[in-house]
Amino acid sequence: MAKASLRVAARVKPGSLSDAEDDDFRRLLGPAQEGDAKALAKLRPLLDKAEVWDSLGNLARHVEEAWLNAITNSNKLVREGYQRRAAELRRELLAAGDSPLERVLIDRVVVTWLQASHADATYASLLTGDGHTWAEGKYRQDRQDRAHARHLKAVKALATVRRLLVPAVQVNIAKQQIISQGARAVATPETDG
């Protein structure tokens, strides 16, 4: 948890907090990450003041770029393919009226998908290569497991936020099922049988 607190503290925009606020921010991070309601209540205004949201958007873009470079290894055609798939995934997940939190969560789903894809590809190439040691196999498989677990966690967080924080209304009119989440409305044809 201490490492996690340091990583969050690194996202604070320099100069955005006074020394006292910065001390409070760092002191409250650990308990808040553990779910301490009082610490969270005190931390919330500091999170806004520290402009963590802006820095998160930049971080997500940086992370996505870094993984794209790692996966495609300067092959422009492969890069194009992954970029398109990532954009498609983002488009599928985004909805009009998404909150900033949802947009950050979607960014996380996209980058964890890239990481999991890279872990899959490197493990597959190891398996189809000319033999490998037990240590290599275990390392790549563990890495793949962790990447998939992180991706699932990202998807679950997005689903939870949408289920619990965005009020949903469902109306069936004729064969059109209208699902409205807050200001958004998605129409899906009802399937027969």
């Binding site: 996690a4 990583r7 969050v8 690194a10 996202r11 991070l29 808040a32 990450q33 779910g35 309601a37 969270l40 209540a41 931390l43 919330r44 999170l47 963590v52 949201w53 998160l56 971080l59 997500a60 940086h62 992370v63 870094a66 993984w67 790692a70 939190l101 950050v104 969560l105 960014d107 996380r108 980058v111 964890t112 990481q115 992180r150 990202a154 967080a157 939870t160 936020v161 619990l164 924080l165």
Partner: peptide, 25 residues
Amino acid sequence: LEGPLLELDDVTDLLVTAAMSAAGY
């Protein structure tokens, strides 16, 4: 490569926790 992703993970988790807690969860 994973370092910045862990950073994104931690900050996002914290923001989710803050939002859920503010909504009474």
